[in-house]
Write a protein that binds this DNA or RNA. Sequence first.
DNA 1: AATATAAATGCAATTTAATTGCATTTATAT
DNA 2: ATATAAATGCAATTAAATTGCATTTATATT
Lengths: 143, 143
Amino acid sequence: MKIDPTHILKEHSLKHTKQRVRVLEEIALDTVAISQPELEKKLGKEIDRVTLYRILNIYEDKGILHRIMDMNGTANYAICSSACSEDHHHDEHIHFNCTNCHKIYCLDVVVPHSTMPKGFTAKTVSTTAYGICEKCNLLVKKN
Amino acid sequence: MKIDPTHILKEHSLKHTKQRVRVLEEIALDTVAISQPELEKKLGKEIDRVTLYRILNIYEDKGILHRIMDMNGTANYAICSSACSEDHHHDEHIHFNCTNCHKIYCLDVVVPHSTMPKGFTAKTVSTTAYGICEKCNLLVKKN
DNA sequence: AATATAAATGCAATTTAATTGCATTTATAT
DNA sequence: ATATAAATGCAATTAAATTGCATTTATATT
Ligand SMILES: [Mn+2]
Ligand SMILES: [Mn+2]
Ligand SMILES: [Zn+2]
Ligand SMILES: [Zn+2]
């Protein structure tokens, strides 16, 4: 995923700081989502813990990142689709949690909606799949 | 939901203690899931924090309770369907998170499976819906 | 009913995650 | 170049979760 941090920041009228650029760069490195602890491990020397929290929160608010909670209650972050805005996220794709490598993939699979019981009105639906990812399946086959 | 704590404990060869009975009683009180902090608030005087964690973990392992992580990474617990066992949970119903009252409902709605991309093998799929629950919708209409 | 023993509990201490307040630094508009 | 509002870093706090260990308790056996 090739992103332009400077452009993204300008787009959302956020001040251009080296910390904000670094966070975007780091998250864009891989196509899979990255967890807060991983980010902290990678950037902890350059960016203060608290600043990292603040940047992640503001990016989520602005619709730049979306947050995916995993099985353990850990926050994971991935770049949002271009359709996301400050008001509303449009990240209704499937999140695939690999139970082997613990990576979280944003899969381009349409989420099947199901009808809610009478009285319940759903605004967004999020689907998470647990299983073995592409890479881990290949590794298993080889051994 | 009428449950028999003593029977449940015997079924899973767990020792019958008053703490374990209380946790089951408390969770069975309501049909909606209850969060760890709520449980702690309700039982904190009778049961030690650590003991509560341990009981919840063992119940999850045994397939007595299932754990539902909410948007904020907080653990919520609900009684499992009778089909759940130590080896495998069968709680693939929809979890409805009310964005107003923050209650989590286990809805008896079939989860629609979707085909995974080539290489990805899903073992379980969990679907979470966010919106307004029955009760909150009624309250809004009244006012 | 008394006893043995393995398991469960409670408590203290530790670790980790997240938040808050405030002084200092920095980006950017003028 | 300067003003100023925003962002950062640091210290302190709050909260969640885990670990180790001494004590208590459930239950199987005598
Ligand atoms: Mn995603
Ligand atoms: Mn459920
Ligand atoms: Zn994997
Ligand atoms: Zn509600």
